[in-house]
Structures are given as C-alpha cells and as structure tokens.
Design a protein around this nucleic acid. Structure first.
Lengths: 196, 196
DNA sequence: CGTGAAAATGTGACACTATAACGTTTCTCT
DNA sequence: AGAGAAACGTTATAGTGTCACATTTTCACG
C-alpha cells in the first residue's frame, strides 16, 4: 500500500482517487485558505478504498465520523466530533460518547485514524491507512497536523532498540511547532478562516 | 548539565549524588527485583540539586510527590500519586487533585518530571532535569519507563524540519514495547514484586 | 426467503483526568 | 515587622473515556 510521505507533494497516496491539492500544499502543510473540497474527496475515497480492501464495513455512523474528520486538517476531540454529528445529522440525534470512541477505535485499528495523544485528539490518516512509525507535525498556531516521514528514525530505531535489548511494538512521534504558513504570517496566533 | 543516556550504565548523571544502580541496570532498564533504594536516593538527591541550582523551592508537598515518584520506575497517574499522598502522609489528609497537578507542573517546567501522554502518567526524569528530545521507552509488560537517547533523531530532526519549512518547538517520542527483562521472562505479563 | 450468529449500535451510568476561581497560608526580602 | 509574591487549600466543574447490558442490523448459510 502507498504510504509515502505527504511531503512528497506530487505523490498520489490514494492512487487516482481524485484531484490533488498539489497547488495548495507546501511540503504537506495545507495552505490556510486552500480549497478543501479536493482534500475531502480524496480522504473519503481513500478511506472507502481501505475499507473495501480489508473487508471492513463502512456503516452510516462510521461514514459520518469519516466525513467530519475529512472536513478538517485539524485534529478533533471525540466530543468535537460528537457535536458535529449532532449538527450534521438530519435527525439531530446525539449519540453517546461511546459511539464516537467505538468508531474511532475501528478506524485506528485499520490505521486510518491517528490519535494525537498530547491533545486527546484524532485525525484522519492522509495516506490511505498505515500503522508504521510516521511523525506527526502539529502547528501550534493553526492546529494543522500533517504526517511526514523521518527516514533516519525508521533506520535508527531498530538498531537502538536492539542495543537496549528492547522490542518495540509501536512508536509515536509528535513534533509541535509552527508550520510554514504560520511562519510566513509572522507566527501570528490569530486564526485564519479556513485554516482548520 | 549532565543529560546523557541512561543506557550509559556507568555514567554519573547526577554527579556523585550517591551509589548507582549499575549492577542492577541492563542498558537503562532496571532489573525487576533490584534493590531500589539507591535509585531512590539518587532520584531525590538529583532533584534537590536541580532545585538548588535553579533557586526553586522544594516544599513539603513537592517533596512528598518527589518521594512517591522516586519510589517507582513506573509512570504514575496524578490520582495514583494522590492516593499515595494520603497513605504516606502522617495526617492522612487528602489533597485536592489540583494540588498534585500543580506540583507536577512545577517539576515539568524544571524538566524534572516527564509526562507520558499516551497514558496520562508522570515519571521522574532520571537524568537530572532536562527538556530536550529524549525518547521514552515503555515496557508494555511491567510498565517500566526509561529514557534513552536516539542520536540519529536529534541529528535528523532539524534537517527534516527545515525541509518541511517547519519550526519545531518540542518533540515527544514514546516507544512502547517489551523491555529486556520481560523478554527474558518470555514476555510473561505477570507482575514481579519490586518491578514497579 | 428465514433464521441464527456475529457485528454494530443504543442506553444509562459512571470512572478517570484536569482545570477554574478565589480564599488562605507561608515564605522571602527589605 | 510588614508588604508582596509564591504556594497551597477549598469548592466546584469541565473534559475525556469506559462498562455493562439491551437492542438492532447485517450477513452467511441452509
């Protein structure tokens, strides 16, 4: 499965799943004002592909959560998602928190959703579902989160683990800082419409 | 300040702060049945040194939390600490949660306590107070947590960040797996007395 | 079809984690 | 000693996550 870095701007992680955001992307960080529609389509199409491939059921609730996550480049808390389920749903019904967590667990097990543990927040994998070591780059200003590989880490980790006699099962790397767009804006902490 | 890897068994992170656990340590992972007393002394002495050096006040409550953390190689939740404060304290008084969190914040700002965000748990820095990138290695079986550097990561991170146009402010690396001692025990999930 | 097992979701309660706001005590410095 | 700052106490509450069990939906198989 294609799991290359988002940093590879012209890569096609999901195959030809739809128009890419190439023009709007700077090394994986979405432009604040970019047209999010293509990203969204790509996210959803990719998720559908993963489900199909793995024989997992993309139910109504799951699709709803998927759409909500796909509509954002920011990690969302479980209760944020819940609120959006209320306002999005035609019936306006409020699911119980456990429902959201169950859906998130489901997607996490498929590698389609990642949890940002420093923030108790979740975001959609932009690469089509993977579980390997892939650092998360989180902008402190606009809260955008991006995945971008760190090849040296992948090389060094097994060696260092062997040195320590440690058997790694999972690795989580969270880098917090300021993304290129916010840097360009002089690190102004003011939120920009659409930079979400 | 000395901030070398725990993996350097013969290093003296806290200067000559007390007897080391060298004989009991395997590449930084404390032996399940090891005599914890020296570790404890070293932890506390080191923390005292940091406070002295930075002019921070080591009050009664803070010392109490420090002692509790120093008595363990496992990360503790804030409420675990709270419970131990109740049972440890002569008066048996129960502080409010906020008290524990305040103390933890205090120590974290000095780099003396780290937070394991994947577990909402805290542990004492074994190196004398630092704030830089230092992976946490967490054993899934015995819950022991250890810090051990990953030099390649420190080298590669700035370069990769520059590539991405990202300005990193903090990096958190959490490696979960099985420590050498638990591996030797055949990954037996049974807790061993003293391996805490 | 239909039916039975498994998967998914609903429901209500509750445990765990963390912080806000404000009052009181303790410490430090002059 | 007294003023100001830091630390801590007190009460309340916000935010995050799970348990246990009931009900509904889905799917494979006869």
């Amino acid at each position: 499965m294609a799991c290359q870095s988002v940093g590879e701007v012209d890569g096609t992680p999901y195959g030809a799943a739809g128009p890419m955001c190439s023009r709007d992307v700077s090394a994986g960080f979405p432009q604040p004002g970019h047209d999010h529609h293509p990203c969204r389509l790509r996210f959803v199409a990719g998720a559908e592909a993963v489900c199909r491939e793995k024989g997992a059921r993309l139910t109504r609730v799951r699709r709803q959560v998927l759409e909500i996550l796909a509509a954002s480049h920011r990690p969302l808390g479980a209760y944020d998602i819940l609120e959006q389920m209320v306002s999005t749903s035609p019936s306006g019904r409020r699911p119980a928190p456990i429902t959201v967590y169950r859906v998130l667990d489901f997607f996490q097990e498929l590698g389609m959703v990642h949890r940002l543990s420093s923030r108790n927040a979740f975001f959609l994998c932009s690469q089509g579902g993977h579980r390997q070591t892939m650092p998360f780059w989180l902008c402190r200003e606009c809260d955008t989160v991006t995945e971008a590989s760190l090849p040296e880490l992948e090389m060094a980790m097994p060696r260092r683990a062997a040195e320590l006699g440690f058997s790694p099962i999972s690795v989580q790397v969270e880098v917090e800082g300021v993304c290129p767009h916010c840097r360009a804006r002089g690190r102004d902490p003011v939120m920009v419409e659409g930079c979400r």
